[in-house]
């Protein structure tokens, strides 16, 4: 068998030009300040006095002028309030940060203790489109793993009534529903081969016929019964009849 290091090396690629370019542009300090204001606001701490009491606010007090100058916040009777632009910027940051946390815990099973650092990096670099895709992929989650709310994005608003993630385990489809296979998340090659030989491959369209006592799905013209464990490794995009 191949050892892991070998493969990882082969996949390594140098930063592309765009990455280098962006790395310079990002002003992470401002981002952190906005985030702190947002988090304090969630705790009901919105005045300069509050900031002074909680140690975390001091850094904002030192930078208030800078933020005001950038037209991100304004001060009114000791209350720190976001401008429209500042509000949006902060909300997007928080959204990206907390979605990243969700993704790292839910999708990749990274222990909660280790998600903070990567989340802090991701929040500065994700584009809106990518953020919305991650959000949809995760099923428009409403809270981060620590239980704090994730501000909804455009993608969530479109689906305010039915919160349906884009990519879900096949086993989550209801009987009668159809899905297009996106990927099969198994490390067991025999499984993959077996599924493949029965016509269960990425891009294939499957219909769930029943879920009890055993899951039965329909692929092409074949009906296949299989264990729950297997079906939950197949990820699909739900297909509705109107497209």
């Amino acid at each position: 068998m191949i050892d892991k290091d070998e493969r990882d090396q082969s996949l390594e690629s140098p930063l592309c030009d765009i990455c280098k370019h962006h790395a310079v542009e990002i002003d992470t300090e401002i981002d952190e300040l906005l985030e702190t204001i947002w988090v304090l606001r969630e705790k009901g701490k919105v005045t300069e006095n509050h900031y002074r009491e909680s140690g975390a606010g001091n850094v904002i007090l030192d930078n208030l002028d800078r933020l005001k100058k950038m037209n991100l916040i304004y001060l009114k009777e000791g209350h720190v309030t976001f401008t429209d632009g500042g509000e949006k910027h902060a909300r997007d940051l928080i959204r990206r940060h907390r979605l990243t946390e969700r993704m790292l815990t839910d999708l990749f099973d990274i222990p909660r203790g280790r998600i903070e650092a990567p989340s802090c990096q991701f929040e500065h670099i994700l584009s809106e489109e990518v953020t919305d895709s991650i959000c949809s992929f995760l099923g428009h989650p409403s809270t981060c793993p620590h239980g704090r709310p994730i501000p909804p994005g455009e993608c969530c608003k479109k689906l305010t009534k039915t919160i349906t993630p884009l990519v879900i385990p096949l086993v989550d489809l209801m009987p009668g529903e159809k899905g297009r296979i996106v990927f099969i998340a198994t490390k067991d090659r025999r499984r993959l081969r077996r599924l493949s030989s029965l016509g269960i491959n990425p891009e294939g369209i499957v219909t769930v016929n029943q879920k009890l006592p055993t899951v039965v799905i329909h692929v092409d013209e074949t009906e296949i019964a299989m264990d729950h464990a297997l079906v939950s490794e197949i990820y699909v995009k739900r297909i509705t009849d109107n497209g």
Partner: peptide
């Protein structure tokens, strides 16, 4: 092993 069985019509 996993249960996968093709169901003929």
């Amino acid at each position: 092993s996993d249960f996968i069985l093709e169901i003929p019509p």
